[in-house]
Nucleic acid binder design. Structure first.
Length: 231
DNA sequence: TAGGCCATCTGGTCCT
DNA sequence: AGGACCAGATGGCCTA
């Protein structure tokens, strides 16, 4: 089921723990006990929430524990986190499987298309797809078309919001609508019509021009990158 | 070689 | 109290 290539968790498990937190194998022992939560290593900087919060909280790994117990505790915590991230990656792979047909024409002479979708690209493409489905649904409603065997024109045409470069791709209502007045997320009552949908064309991932079929399909017109994941 | 992407470790915070 | 979640740090792999 793993559709990923060299970066899948299972294929990357062959590495070893490096002193400062590099690749780790599932069986690899934790590092030196001195690094187990006692702040010897550079570690993450004090984050904004934790900074200046008065007296130091007790260490997460209690000092009462002997080194072996600390090591075991740290091992369990690491294992849980690893498992959590692997589950997340499995979900990401499942999403990738669904989105891949819409992101790659599988043309072997277009290597920039044959690569696995990155996480960020997968999420953005999925989001764009959902928005597209919403607009298609809206058109069906407008035309009074029932769901019985009728597929929205835009979906049939395969006009997917293809990716250009990850980081630039947020598919906003601004970019979707010809009218650029609204900057708020789409509301059910203001879904764009297909006639209003407007795409950019001709540029493949990474910004290079490409003449393949997929690249000639419409692209999302994106806005400037903007802020990254505001908290 | 630089930059993108990723896995892992880690400590802090939130939640049950 | 323990687990889940989050984000920073680090280093490996890969590609342009």
């Amino acid at each position: 089921m793993n559709t990923s290539t060299s970066n899948s968790p299972s294929s990357r498990d062959s590495g070893f723990i490096t002193p400062l937190g590099g690749r780790a194998s599932q069986q690899a022992l934790p590092r030196d006990v001195s690094s187990l939560g006692m702040g010897l290593l550079p570690g993450p900087a004090v984050n904004a929430m934790g900074a200046g919060r008065g007296p130091q909280r007790p260490a997460k790994l209690p000092r009462e524990l002997n080194p072996e117990e600390q090591q075991e505790l740290r091992r369990r915590i690491n294992s849980r986190e690893r498992k959590r991230m692997q589950d997340l990656n499995m979900a990401m792979d499942a999403l990738r499987e669904v989105m891949m047909p819409y992101s790659s024409p599988a043309a072997q002479d277009h290597p920039h298309h044959s690569r696995r979708l990155s996480k960020i690209s997968t999420l953005i493409l999925a989001r764009n797809y959902i928005l597209l489905l919403g607009s298609s649904l809206q058109e069906m409603r407008r035309l009074g078309v029932g769901l019985g065997g009728v597929t929205p024109r835009l979906l049939l045409a395969g006009n997917w919001p293809f990716l250009t470069t990850p980081g630039q791709l947020l598919f906003t209502s601004d970019s979707l609508l010809t009218s650029t007045k609204s900057s708020v997320p789409l509301q059910p009552t203001e879904e764009p019509t297909l006639a209003q949908a407007q795409w950019s064309t001709g540029e493949g991932p990474g910004g290079q021009l490409c003449s393949c079929g997929a690249c000639k399909l419409p692209h999302v017109i994106h806005t400037s990158p903007g802020t990254r994941y505001p908290k």
